[in-house]
């Protein structure tokens, strides 16, 4: 627990996830009390068997909280998230190293 200088976000995905959540809160998708209740419950659940670190473990719980909240609000999101995950995976695996990675969005 030493307080060495550290970046604000350890990983780019932590920052992206944080920004998405703040933006969704600003849109009124959830309130912070609702968020902390859900997020706290998820941390407790994930930490039942091992002590969570404040980095990847913490943001993985955050990610699971946000995914579950969105799917609860709109059940169609589940399939779409799964399709988009597959599309991004495919895009990374088929894009030559050094080129920008993009996916085609199906409507």
């Amino acid at each position: 627990m030493q307080a060495a200088p550290e970046p604000v976000f350890e990983q780019p995905w932590h920052a992206q996830l944080f920004a998405l959540s703040v933006a969704l809160h600003a849109q009124g998708l959830f309130s912070w009390p609702e968020w902390t209740k859900r997020f706290g419950a998820r941390l407790k659940h994930n930490g039942a068997n091992h002590a969570l670190n404040g980095g990847d473990d913490y943001f993985t719980a955050w990610l699971e909280t946000l995914e579950a909240l969105l799917v609860e609000r709109d059940p169609k999101d589940q399939q779409q998230l799964s399709d988009l995950h597959a599309a991004w995976t495919e895009a990374y695996l088929s894009t030559p190293h050094g080129s920008p990675v993009a996916i085609k969005i199906k409507k």
């Binding site: 990983q11 780019p12 995905w13 998405l20 933006a23 990847d56 993985t60 969105l70 995950h85």
Partner: peptide
């Protein structure tokens, strides 16, 4: 990583 791809999926969706 898997969580990074899931965040990309969320971002694209939203």
């Amino acid at each position: 990583s898997d969580p990074a791809l899931r965040v990309k999926a969320l971002e694209t969706l939203l």
